[in-house]
Amino acid sequence: MPEENVDQDRQATRRRRRRLLLVAIGFLYLLSVPWYRSPSDALNILWGLPDWVTVAVVCYALVAVFNSLAWRLTDIDDGDALPLTLSDPADGPPDEESL
């Protein structure tokens, strides 16, 4: 397989994994807020904190790990600076391809 195709496959896999991580982060945020619990539930201490607080802390710790992985899978190609800048009066917008 040509090297270019291998690179494209690798990038597509990274993008797919990043999307999955971001979806998982969304679910963790939903789980972190105790909308599914009754306000009248008795206090139950888990790992030193009220159990609903422990759930939130665990969710946010997992968000941190997943988000860190998602950033490591994010590719930002700066490219080269265009010859024209905002200060140039004759400046037009760059082609989409150039960005």
């Binding site: 939130a56 969710c59 946010y60 700066d78 600076a81 265009l82």
Partner: peptide, 25 residues
């Protein structure tokens, strides 16, 4: 949660804004 959400929401902004910022100064 909300402080961490900032670094999550940056995913919507940074990958597109950063290249444009560098290329357009």
């Amino acid at each position: 949660g909300f402080m961490m959400a900032i670094v999550v929401v940056f995913h919507i902004l940074v990958p597109k804004l950063r290249p444009a910022a560098v290329q357009r100064g």
